[in-house]
Design a protein around this nucleic acid. Structure first.
Length: 136
RNA sequence: CAGGUCGGCCAGGCGGUCGCGCUCCGCGCAUCGCGCGGGGUGAGGAAAGUCCGGGCUCCACAGGGCACGGUGCUGGGUAACGCCCAGGCGGGGUAACCCGACGGAUCGGGCCACAGAAACAGACCGCCAGGUUGGUGGGUUAGCGGGAUAUGAGCAUCCCGCUGAUUCCCCCAUAUACCGGCUACCGGUCUACCAGAUACCCGUCUACCAACCUGGCAAGGGUGAAAAGGUGGUGUAAGAGACCACCGGCGUCCGGGGUGACCCGGGCGGCCAGGCAACCCCCACCGGGAGCAAGGCCAAGCAGGGGCGACGUGGGGGCAAGCGAAGUGCCGCCUGCCCCCACACGGGGCGGCCCGUCCCGUCCGAGCCCCGGGUGGGCCGCUUGAGGCGGCGGGCAACCGCCGUCCCAGAGAGAUGACCGCCCACGACAGAACCCGGCUUAUCGGCCGGCCUGGAGC
RNA sequence: GCGGGCGUGGUUCAGUUGGUAGAACGUCUCCUUGCCAAGGAGAAGGCCACGGGUUCGAGUCCCGUCGCCCGCU
């Protein structure tokens, strides 16, 4: 399912491969408003009915992930639900993602109709399209 | 048992794997801090909407008046409320029970479309009295007169006219005779006088209809959401609370009950004239402004520029320099700086205005406006509180007091999720962001209790 | 957290002392033209966002709900 054509720059080399270790989610979160703005301004976009993936390279050697659910998704309960599903999927699949990227996941309303594994499958599909997927 | 009504409670549960926020203990690295292991704890009845009320924090705290906003039966509860409890009154329901912005309409302004005579004061139809003018049909029958036919003449027969407005019949008219309907109209039904003379003459009495005029009336009709107390009687030309009886309502006074709203009984009064104050308004009571992005501390960083802007005046004091032939003293004059007082002006506190008051400033300038620059990190506030539970006591209750006991989320891109198994029989509305008390709205289903109505059985 | 505004025909908007809801454009029918457009004549189309209340009567006044938009910090 490798996508041909132009591809984002290769991940920074020489980063340790510690995929066996459980990911410490709090260390790989994208937190600052400036980071979100930078990714959405400079990054490339891949979309899926459940959510949208935006990716931009960073020079830090780690892959950070931010999660967004706007008012279109629903009220507070619905937005929390959407962000939890996206965080859980990202946490599980983080070891398979290329390093040195900042990712933003934007929830769409249909995500409320599915369960966890479908979100993980959708994230894997988008990661493959973006060329960020690394088979173990 | 069925239906109804009111109140209270629960908000899927258990187990396993991988994860999250906070916190405690131990160990390790070891400056903050980080990592590992273990324990504890972790969203709601509405956390929601932000419709009220407070606490807390900062700003401001002589005060007065006027605005503005809110609340609106009474008493109580409370930190406070527009909330709650109890009671009163009004309305709904067979009942339990539920609902009610529920002060004032004889201080004033305003509004009440259309219809209707009139919407708060009146007369369209109508009823009554008086006056003026005009009118009251036809038939039959009778009388009288005339004529025609016929005859000697008459009677008789036929025709016409007049009279009896009244006795027999018919028709017509009449919105207060009655019934029905599409209701000032239409249809149907009923009634339409009395007396008197010889229905002849004279005279008298009197009825009815129409139009108009003058006056009286407010019963009835019709309009409307709303029209002047209701029923019966007296009374009158016709009528009317004009008067009377009973009933209903209003005002006022007295007596009684209640803290009070209000209720009960009695007397008196005129029946005086509606509704809307979620229209203005009046009355009573309440209300400073902002909000945890409040506010405080630490660290880091930066760069300033422009515009508007009040006239100042008088007095006093201190210091310094100069001048008055001389003088480190005294006095006077003058200049500069600083301070105080009074007045004027400008600005601010003072939330909208005025008075008043306090503070700052008046050309080295208070304050205001515009442009530009830096930061957007950390800590505190931050959860022990009008707190939960249990018991006792007070109170009809809301609630309050005392004692005991418990600690029960504190995040900061923002913590409860993912997967599997089982059970109940499939899980609704929905996520804390400073904290409480209420209200309102959303909500699958289940449990418990009080009361009411109906039916059945003992 | 605090504050403000708006929901009316298909669309854009009016609508004051509360009294039968209007305009423009659009739609439809007819006329005009060989045909279309323009033009002329006429018509249809609204539970005034929703639910209660006040009033005889509510688009309008009061309370609540929903949706959309804006401002300040």
């Amino acid at each position: 399912m490798e996508l041909e054509g132009e591809r984002p720059p290769a991940p920074a080399p020489g980063v340790g491969r510690e995929r066996d270790r459980p990911v410490r989610w709090r260390e790989v979160r994208l937190r600052r408003s400036a980071d979100f703005d930078r990714v959405r301004r400079e990054g490339r976009t891949w979309s899926h009915p459940l959510f949208v993936l935006i990716a931009a390279p960073n020079p830090m050697g780690v892959t950070r992930i931010g999660v967004v659910a706007g008012r279109r998704v629903g009220r507070a309960v619905a937005r929390n639900r959407a962000k939890r599903l996206l965080r859980e999927a990202a946490r599980h699949l983080h070891p398979h993602l290329a390093t040195g990227w900042d990712l933003v996941l934007i929830a769409r309303p249909p995500i409320l109709t599915v369960k966890g594994p479908q979100v993980e499958a959708a994230l894997e599909e988008l990661a493959r399209k973006a060329g960020l997927w690394q088979e173990e």
